[in-house]
Design a protein around this nucleic acid. Structure first.
Lengths: 204, 204
DNA sequence: CGTCGAATTGATGTCATTCAACTACAGTGG
DNA sequence: CCACTGTAGTTGAATGACATCAATTCGACG
């Protein structure tokens, strides 16, 4: 759930753990062999609705997304995950419930599969590391709350502007109809919002 | 974040910890003296926007809510917390950020104030207890995700029906305009939705 | 009894959706 | 190399859902 995509070195998950998670190089070495890295192609589905989602996915390179199919039969994008983000149906991993989302690859990607008790093993190495997962969870919550506020209050244009502000780097990587889906509007509406903004002389 | 209001015995937080949290009676005794219980009156504001939210609130009796003021100047209800629920701006407690929400009392209430590192102290008593907080966090996330889905996909009527299903006991306790605010619609619209449902011969 | 906020109702406006047509472009196979 | 096809994006006209504004009713409470 943290920002700043980087230029996708191999094993950026290791650097992430040590730099952002504050986990010693040594400990990273000790546990990382329990991890699998996987390459997926654009369009590949990693988790389907009804599956058990057994892993948390860390994106080293590329772009994943999660989405549901509403009762209206339409896709609703829940989250995008570019480099250095996690993506997962936490309820499914944690409670062993069938997944309520799809997770698929928007671009060819290289990802790290983190199994359910990876964090537990990490916590066993050093009690402080339990706090790392805690931080991830709190970040996640903060993030969804921001989104909730927008959906509750803001009209389409403001939601779009806020999306640009939060994910400036995704603007050119994600097709417009997916952004529309993330914003909770139709592609046509987003097209018109963009036109309006252009008329107002708005530059990204 | 768990259901089933009860008939508000004194110290229902203790029972909650032992029954739901699986924490031994003895350990509950050991730490509960660090907790304060407080009575608040309908309308009292516990946390204001900009304040530091220093506590997680557990509702033993009564009803709290959290809400923001959108840029449109309107209230948006984030969450209701009846008996046996927690309510908190987690980002504020965890990251020491100024609160982005108000928390106030919808009814006269008796609440337990849980300070930021209560869970840490609990975890120190018994390593397994760390998992309790983890479970709370995951429940919270699952809950907001459900909400996200509704806001993304469902029209007013479906959101209302889903609200009734999730919080049947709140229907009679929360004024209609607050429910409307929770659903992201105006009180007038909710009134019409209800009328429609009545015409369709819908019974709560 | 009078007042105030909550809820309903009607008239009207606005924003986003829907449906359909059209353009642009990328990928495929002849 | 070019036609064929499918998907993304744009645009227009009509519709629909919800908001807004204003008037009225209802009920709680001093």
């Amino acid at each position: 759930m943290l920002r700043n995509p980087i230029d996708a070195p191999e094993n950026s998950f290791g650097s992430y753990l040590s730099q952002i998670g504050g986990i010693s190089e040594e400990d990273v070495e000790n546990i990382k062999e329990g991890l699998r890295t996987k390459k997926v192609s654009k369009g590949d589905i990693l988790v389907g609705i009804g599956d058990l989602c057994r892993h948390n996915f860390f994106v080293e390179k590329g772009l994943l997304r999660s989405y549901t199919i509403g009762e209206d039969g339409k896709e609703h994008v829940i989250q995008f995950a570019p480099e250095n983000w996690f993506i997962v149906d936490r309820a499914s991993v944690y409670f062993n419930d069938p997944s309520e989302v799809y997770i698929d690859a928007v671009e060819d990607s290289r990802i790290v599969l983190i199994d359910g008790d990876f964090m537990d093993r990490l916590a066993k190495l050093d009690g402080d590391y339990a706090k790392f997962n805690d931080r991830l969870l709190h970040n996640h919550i903060r993030h969804i709350h921001k989104r909730l506020n927008l959906l509750l209050g803001a009209p389409a244009e403001k939601r779009y502007l806020s999306f640009i502000e939060m994910y400036p780097n995704l603007l050119l990587r994600v097709p417009q109809w997916m952004i529309a889906s993330y914003l909770g509007i139709t592609p046509e509406s987003l097209s018109r919002v963009r036109k309006e903004l252009a008329n107002k002389n708005f530059k990204v």
